[in-house]
Write a protein that binds this DNA or RNA. Sequence first.
DNA 1: TCAACATATTTTCTCGAGATTTTGAATTTC
DNA 2: GAAATTCAAAATCTCGAGAAAATATGTTGA
Lengths: 239, 239
Amino acid sequence: MSETALTPPAEAPEPKTLVEGAYQRLRRDIIEGVHAPGEKLRVEHLKDRYEVGAGTLREALLLLVTDALVVTQGQRGFRVAPISIADFEDITRTRVLLETEALRQSIGLGGEDWEAGVVAAFHRLSRAEQRLASQDGGTTQEWEIRNRAFHEALIAASTSRWIRHFQHILYHQSERYRRISLFRQPIERDIHAEHQALFDATMARDATRATSILTEHILRTLDAVKRMPADFFSGTGKR
Amino acid sequence: MSETALTPPAEAPEPKTLVEGAYQRLRRDIIEGVHAPGEKLRVEHLKDRYEVGAGTLREALLLLVTDALVVTQGQRGFRVAPISIADFEDITRTRVLLETEALRQSIGLGGEDWEAGVVAAFHRLSRAEQRLASQDGGTTQEWEIRNRAFHEALIAASTSRWIRHFQHILYHQSERYRRISLFRQPIERDIHAEHQALFDATMARDATRATSILTEHILRTLDAVKRMPADFFSGTGKR
DNA sequence: TCAACATATTTTCTCGAGATTTTGAATTTC
DNA sequence: GAAATTCAAAATCTCGAGAAAATATGTTGA
């Protein structure tokens, strides 16, 4: 049994339909910057790249509106959602608000299954970080997936579907920015230390300390992006 | 110049396209319970009612997925999002989390324009409540619209687009439940008193008191729904 | 040289029909 | 009688072409 079978693919829930398939590939391409922020998404053009009909691609784009990765207005087609420092600051602070609340709930309510999930996710992430540090075949994409899995495991025991839903959306959003910041300034060693501290506080059921660490942890990425050249965001995809 | 021209219709931003038109009408029908929670939404059936093509209606349904008023899975079509007491409790508590934070920001940052907006919205709401109390041509729908306008005016000065976005979604959700509770137990006189207290605390820039009142105010609807017969939620639209 | 207008091209939006899949009923088998 | 299988009906998903709108281009006149 392969590893991907044990890990219900957090990213790819097996596309049951052409629309879902196009949706997933489009989403990944937008997050990875293949389609630049603000860029116009012409249906006729894209239907070749993703090998589906025009109507099908339109539906996929409509689904991306749900994730706020694509915007559409009136009769003027689709466009990749623009990015800006102000937007990322907003995303980050809202994420802190939701994710700390969810973590607080998890620590208060989580049972053994939740604990086991956190331990497993932390272990996986740690291994990926080791591999990344030693240049031993570790990929950023692998780390990205396991990082999200860890964050989601932390809040998995939250009773609030809605908080988890919104947190999911915001995580996708910040992924776009994180990718930019990593491009300039590769992963630093102390991210693992942050994760370790977060893990320890969580397992000790110390909600105050855990949420505090989580807040710092999330805000740190904001600082990294803030330090980037300001014109980085206005360069592409206008008009 | 009519009143609706001055008030950029918070509900109907002028459908520029058939999809948007069908989307708006469908959304209203779902919120009003024309399509019961859990009910299957057959495209062939609905395209007659809304007088659009099948593909167009599909796109409208996809847009409703964004608002989480419609759910879709794999190859099994569309369905009105189900409701439950647990879900409403979740919605309400998440709303409290977001809306109090947004109100706190507004009170801290809001300028004269924001104040003027709050005053105007409160005035409109008060008049609607007077009319409703005196049976003088006041409609519940009018009250509903102005109630939302008031709540949105309160947090209009928040810097967070994302919080406002999520709050907007949750408000639509709770509208479905509120409609049910009003059906059983009509508006009580003290709702106006709550609004008055909330208004006063906000204008006094007392963030602590204002958020406290807002929390109570929102939770009160939850209590009303909780007191309803439990089988109210499982009655319709199964399978 | 610039602005305003009219035209042409591109793009979006909309629709109906065909291919797949799911659902439901009837039949068969244990 | 209940479970499994088979077959028919219904519904979803998908596609390409035509109508409407927006954008780009070219022309005319001051």
